[in-house]
């Protein structure tokens, strides 16, 4: 793995992130429901993972050596569906069946209907433990794959998160890489007001994780942090990625109202236009 992103690759990944944002908004508008805020905040993280960093093969989705991606914040799934389609797991047209009856693209990930999602999720707080189990299995099977787990900041208010925070260091799961989409918002308001998490870095460090703090919209920083997380310090990794909820669309950015509602057709067109120009 190169130590930094080439300008060409950076350009290509930015284009991909933009496409994932557009697709997410198109899907949500088509479904007339869904969660735009947390899909847009995670778009750059998901892009670097799926289009550059993770080892996986759309033609052999169950390849045992593949890196695992656990979407713990299940409501952010539109951006992941968009990534899976762009990678070639299923046709892009299928994206527009999101949340419709009989679709594999459930409002929250359904592992049985759509096995490319490594686990079902949507009840917050459960994904980190599941990712931990996958990391333990890799150790048992002496496999090289890594397990990535994307968490919401509000989500980490769940007690189960801190149970996993305790157990993963015990088992020295250096192959477990948690990424926190720290977009500062949840449903009832700003995370700071609802239930303050700070000092976040100090908490994870105190639980004995290898912690990095980055700008989650800077592709170079995401890449560098993932590189750093490949080096074993006999600890699990936590990447706290500072992001903006609704990133890329002016009227959605940092606006809690856009946590879980669909844009109107007009708002969608305006959003797509902004993303195009940006």
């Amino acid at each position: 793995m190169a130590t930094s992103l080439s300008p060409e690759l950076h350009q290509k990944l930015s284009e991909t992130a933009r496409a994932l944002r557009m697709l997410s908004l198109q899907m949500i508008t088509e479904a007339q429901s869904g969660h735009p805020g947390g899909s847009l905040s995670a778009a750059d993280l998901v892009t670097v993972l799926f289009f550059h960093y993770m080892t996986h093969n759309p033609h052999e989705p169950h390849w045992p050596e593949r890196d695992r991606f656990v979407l713990s914040k299940g409501h952010g799934v539109p951006v992941v569906y968009a990534a899976l389609a762009k990678c070639g797991y299923f046709p892009e047209e299928e994206l527009m069946t999101l949340r419709k009856i009989n679709s594999r693209l459930q409002g929250h990930p359904d592992h049985v209907r759509l096995p490319f999602m490594e686990t079902s999720s949507g009840s917050l707080g459960q994904g980190l433990s599941i990712a931990q189990g996958m990391a333990m299995a890799a150790k048992l099977d002496q496999k090289k794959y890594k397990t990535y787990c994307l968490l919401g900041d509000g989500e980490t208010q769940e007690g189960q998160i801190w149970e996993a925070a305790m157990s993963a260091p015990k088992y020295q799961l250096d192959n477990l890489i948690a990424i926190l989409d720290f977009n500062k918002g949840q449903i009832d308001g700003y995370t700071e007001d609802v239930m303050n998490l700070s000092p976040l870095k100090a908490k994870w460090e105190a639980f004995n994780w290898e912690v990095q703090e980055i700008d989650g919209h800077d592709l170079h920083q995401i890449f560098a942090a993932l590189n750093h997380a490949q080096i074993s310090r006999k600890k699990p990794h936590m990447i706290i990625a500072h992001t903006i909820k609704g990133k890329g669309v002016s009227f959605m950015e940092d606006n809690i109202d856009w946590h879980g509602k669909s844009p109107s057709l007009k708002e969608r067109d305006q959003a797509i236009e902004e993303l195009r120009r940006h």
Partner: peptide, 8 residues
């Protein structure tokens, strides 16, 4: 509840 699906 509709669109959110089974988890909710």
């Amino acid at each position: 509840i509709g669109e959110d699906g089974y988890t909710q």
